[in-house]
Simulated scan of single mutants.
Amino acid sequence: MAENKEEDVKLGANKFRETQPLGTAAQTDKDYKEPPPAPLFEPGELSSWSFYRAGIAEFMATFLFLYITILTVMGLKRSDSLCSSVGIQGVAWAFGGMIFALVYCTAGISGGHINPAVTFGLFLARKLSLTRAVFYIVMQCLGAICGAGVVKGFMVGPYQRLGGGANVVNPGYTKGDGLGAEIIGTFVLVYTVFSATDAKRNARDSHVPILAPLPIGFAVFLVHLATIPITGTGINPARSLGAAIIYNDKHAWSDHWIFWVGPMIGAALAAVYHQIIIRAMPFHRA
């Protein structure tokens, strides 16, 4: 145990502890110190158990996220299901609630990203290495595919008939509408992540709560309320990929690029905006 703890300090998610976790206050003291940027490549991570443990946490979290949320969507669409009365609000609560719970559970292990767009935004902000970012995204996508696959296993017949929870641009909206909705929705999510976990803000404003998963979960909930009628709400490329692969419909694949390009643009804009607005603010305390 002592050796593992020492390894965690030297390598992996805890090496730059003030830049990594999403679910806890970045610094415990009130005197702000600018955290160092994560290195672009950190070869030492590849020999660290904490690195692989974080990847496993991202896989399991995304697996559970897809399992609960896609199963809720399928229940909503089945007229003979007890879940058919949950409505859009119930689906939004499923997505937001699961993000709240899973970020809370995995923040201290992997940072609780559960979303390639979040990982990409944090990478652009130099809060994790490229090595870790790529590993996280791969594990998130694999977890999403497995989660959607388990749902299909439960609902072999209705799954294909009900759309498999795949994200598509709904009738009455253009692909441009869908792309715009994904960009803005992901911007809201990733900007909330940055704001809820910013070390300078936590040090400056003592009233800022340390429980970051709560505002992040609410952001996911609210974005789903707004954009489910447009795209079914992606804002998470792994969620969209997992559902699309298991559903495997030509119509879903024709729109699929929107659910990668939109979230990545939204995450990049959030990273830039946070850097300009929050990180550029002078630090002072009352």
Rank of each mutant, 00 (worst) to 15 (best):
T62N: 12
T233A: 11
T72N: 09
L71M: 11
A196T: 08
T19P: 00
T197G: 06
M60Q: 03
V118W: 02
F259N: 11
A25H: 05
G266N: 05
W253K: 10
M60W: 06
W257M: 05
K10A: 12
G185N: 06
F95R: 02
F100Y: 15
A196I: 07
F59G: 08
A148Q: 08
L179F: 14
V261L: 15
L40V: 09
Y191I: 03
D80I: 04
L46G: 14
G143N: 06
L128A: 03
P213D: 09
Q275F: 05
S85Y: 09
T174V: 00
K30F: 10
A280V: 04
I258Q: 11
G185D: 00
I184A: 07
T106S: 15
E42I: 04
V208P: 00
W49V: 14
R17T: 01
V193M: 03
A166L: 12
W257I: 10
D177V: 01
R239F: 15
I114C: 14
G163K: 01
L225K: 06
G147M: 07
V118S: 06
F154G: 09
C83I: 03
F95M: 05
Y32W: 14
G234W: 05
Y247R: 03
D31V: 14
R201Y: 04
A94T: 09
G165R: 14
S48T: 10
V91G: 06
A203E: 10
M98Q: 13
D205G: 00
I184L: 15
T24M: 14
L82R: 09
I216D: 01
G165Y: 08
V118D: 01
V150S: 11
A196Q: 10
L241K: 13
F218Q: 00
C141N: 13
Q89E: 10
H224Y: 15
S110K: 15
I277D: 01
Q160M: 02
D8E: 14
F120C: 01
D205I: 07
E58C: 11
V220R: 02
I99N: 11
H251S: 06
G143E: 09
S240E: 11
F120N: 05
T174C: 03
P282F: 01
R126I: 03
V193Q: 03
S85E: 08
E34V: 09
L64A: 14
R279M: 06
T19R: 00
P237V: 07
L189E: 02
A117K: 04
Y173V: 01
V208R: 00
F120I: 02
K250S: 14
F63V: 07
P37H: 00
I210D: 14
N170V: 05
A219L: 07
P37I: 02
T131M: 08
T106F: 13
P158G: 05
L40D: 04
A219F: 04
